[in-house]
Amino acid sequence: MEIYYSPLACSLSTRIAVYEAGAEEKARLVRVNTKSQTTADGADYRAINPKGLVPAVRTAEGEVLSENAAVLQYIADAFPEAGLAPAAGDMERYRLQQWLSFVGSELHKAVFAPLLSPTADEGAKTYARQGAAARLDYLAAHLEGREYLLDRFSVADAYLAAVLNWAQFVKIDLAAWPAIVAYRERVAARPAVARAMKDEFELYRAAA
């Protein structure tokens, strides 16, 4: 399979998932320049994913799947031995989907996307900041006394790690939520997560 990513975008979560699964030889990571909409080898990325967004995955059969929540579950199911997602039909699988949706809609799109956007006006950024506290309160309450979002590390944690990484770029001080800070440190200490973060920061800096 081929997984399309851009350094430090939400597709960082797909790199984390690949590393957690030990699947580097089976999943080829293909860098995308989201400004020029081209891949590292010069291909037109919109011909692969018309939305032009990362991540996307192209399966061995040539099918293309986009949207992070779907891509992450596909990777988890492709490498079930890694235990990155509960089995389909299990109540915990629906909990996984619940947290993927929360991270995607309530944090990624509602809070961080406007704050990171160079074109969002100050009204949009103010609205995003005003809504951030309640969402982070909810997350912190869930994480009190828990290691991960579910009973074990999952692709939802990979997504959340990628999104919380943006706090430093938009000046959201997570110190107000000790449970989130402790969670971030715990997740960042996982070898696969640390490696993925290091690799993507290096790629990001090299392109700057």
Rank of each mutant, 00 (worst) to 15 (best):
S6P: 00
A188P: 00
Q168H: 14
L149E: 03
I16G: 02
L136R: 02
W166T: 03
P114W: 02
I3Q: 02
G42Y: 07
L53Y: 06
T59M: 07
G89D: 03
G42A: 05
D77N: 12
A175D: 13
E63F: 13
Y204P: 00
Q97L: 14
A78K: 09
K125S: 07
G145R: 00
D151S: 12
D41Q: 13
R184D: 05
Y204G: 00
Q97H: 10
K109L: 11
E106T: 03
V57S: 09
Q73W: 00
Q130R: 11
A167K: 06
L116V: 07
Q130G: 15
Y45W: 04
G145K: 02
F153A: 02
F201I: 03
A167E: 11
K51E: 06
Y4A: 10
V18Q: 06
E122I: 00
L96T: 12
E20D: 05
F112D: 01
A110N: 09
A9G: 03
D151P: 01
Y127P: 07
E185P: 00
K35L: 11
A21S: 14
L150K: 02
D173M: 05
F153I: 08
V103I: 09
E63K: 14
A85Y: 07
G89A: 08
L115T: 09
E67V: 11
A40Y: 00
T34D: 01
A140P: 01
P178H: 07
C10G: 10
R186T: 06
G145P: 05
V181I: 03
R95C: 09
A56G: 05
Y74K: 05
N49F: 05
L12C: 07
A85P: 12
V64Q: 01
Y148D: 01
A70G: 10
Y5F: 14
K171A: 15
Y45I: 01
F102M: 06
A158C: 15
L96W: 10
A162M: 08
L149I: 05
L203G: 08
V103R: 03
A132S: 15
S66P: 00
E147R: 12
A69V: 02
A188I: 02
V18H: 04
P178S: 12
E185C: 03
Y148P: 01
M91I: 15
R205V: 08
F79G: 06
R205L: 08
E202Y: 10
A156D: 08
S105V: 06
M91E: 14
P178E: 12
G22F: 13
G52D: 07
R31K: 12
D44A: 12
A140V: 01
E2R: 14
S11T: 04
G83C: 11
C10D: 04
D44S: 13
L29T: 06
S154A: 08
